[in-house]
Computed example of a mutant assay.
Amino acid sequence: MLGPRQEAQAALFYEFSLNDHVPQDHLLRSNDRFVDLSDIRQYLFAHDASHGL
């Protein structure tokens, strides 16, 4: 059978928030003040599940 396998599809998608996994006091969070990532964030926004599309 060549149709889509629905049970396998769920394994391909998952929710992951980097923000949930980086501690509030981690060095990466302090770098955010000095590095402008607005262009990258705008590009990735369309792929981010947390904004509720």
Rank of each mutant, 00 (worst) to 15 (best):
F16I: 06
V35N: 05
F13H: 14
A46V: 05
D20G: 01
N31E: 00
D32L: 06
Q6Y: 09
H21S: 10
F34L: 12
D20K: 07
V22Q: 01
V35K: 06
E7W: 06
A46L: 11
Q9K: 09
Q42C: 02
Q9L: 15
G52L: 12
G3Q: 14
L18K: 00
A11I: 08
Q6P: 08
R29M: 00
R5M: 11
G52E: 11
H21T: 00
Y43T: 10
A46G: 15
Q9N: 09
A11V: 11
E15D: 13
Q42M: 07
G52V: 06
L37G: 11
D32G: 07
N19S: 15
D39G: 15
L44P: 02
Y43L: 14
Q6C: 07
S17A: 11
I40F: 05
E7T: 12
E15M: 01
V35L: 09
A49R: 04
L44T: 06
D39Q: 15
A49W: 02
H26N: 08
N19M: 13
F34N: 09
V35P: 03
R33F: 14
H26G: 01
P4Y: 06
P4R: 00
S30T: 09
Q9A: 14
V35G: 00
V22F: 01
H51F: 12
D20I: 02
L53I: 01
F34E: 10
Q6H: 09
H51Q: 11
S50I: 10
D48H: 01
Q42K: 13
N31M: 07
I40K: 05
H51V: 14
E7G: 03
G52S: 10
A8R: 09
L12D: 14
L12P: 02
L37W: 07
H26M: 04
R33G: 09
D48S: 10
F13T: 15
D48E: 10
F34P: 04
D39K: 11
G3T: 12
G52W: 02
G52T: 02
D25A: 12
N31K: 04
L12T: 12
I40Q: 04
R41V: 01
F13L: 15
L44G: 00
E15P: 02
M1F: 13
D20M: 01
F16D: 07
R29N: 12
Y14T: 15
F16Q: 00
V22Y: 03
A46M: 09
H21M: 08
F34C: 08
L27W: 03
S38Y: 02
S50V: 10
D36N: 14
S30R: 07
D36L: 00
R41N: 07
S50D: 11
H26Q: 00
P23C: 11
H21R: 10
N31Q: 04
A10L: 11
D48K: 02
L53C: 04
A8M: 09
M1C: 13
G3A: 14
L2G: 15
D32W: 04
L44K: 02
Q6N: 09
G3R: 09
L44C: 08
P23H: 00
V22P: 07
L27P: 02
E7L: 04
L28H: 05
R5S: 13
N19D: 15
G52I: 06
L53P: 12
S50L: 13
N19R: 14
M1K: 12
L28Y: 03
